[in-house]
Amino acid sequence: MSRLSVKWAAASAMILALCAAGCVVPGDAGYGDVGVGYGVNFYEPFDNYGYEGPGYLVGPPRGGDRRLPGYRPGAHAYRGAPAGHAMPSIPHGGPRDHR
């Protein structure tokens, strides 16, 4: 041990470091580092919780709804769909065998 070559030690260190760096997930997008990537931020804060009543009318439209004649999108932060566009619904039908 006392006669280890500096060159050999340096080369070994570099190889090991490169191997380690090659395996490390840069950053953490989730899975590869389950213990790290899914941080506490992915939990919801403990807010007002419990029975929330029937006020949730948040489902999809059936589609085909036309705006009332004379409809004009109001002033919004978003860009409203053109008045002539009918409201779409969610996908339907399809080739799957379990409808």
């Binding site: 041990m1 006392s2 006669r3 280890l4 070559s5 500096v6 030690a9 070994s12 260190a13 090991l16 470091a17 380690a20 395996c23 490390v24 997930v25 899975y31 590869g32 580092d33 389950v34 213990g35 790290v36």
Partner: peptide, 29 residues
């Protein structure tokens, strides 16, 4: 030549490098 102390330092650095690299990440890819 490395003295025993220098060799120990090098090995410590290598060990730290390995330990600081998250083990799950090493296995993940």
């Amino acid at each position: 030549v490395l003295t025993s102390r220098a060799a120990l330092t090098a090995l410590t650095a290598l060990t730290a490098l390995t330990v600081l690299t998250p083990a799950p990440a090493l296995a993940a890819s």
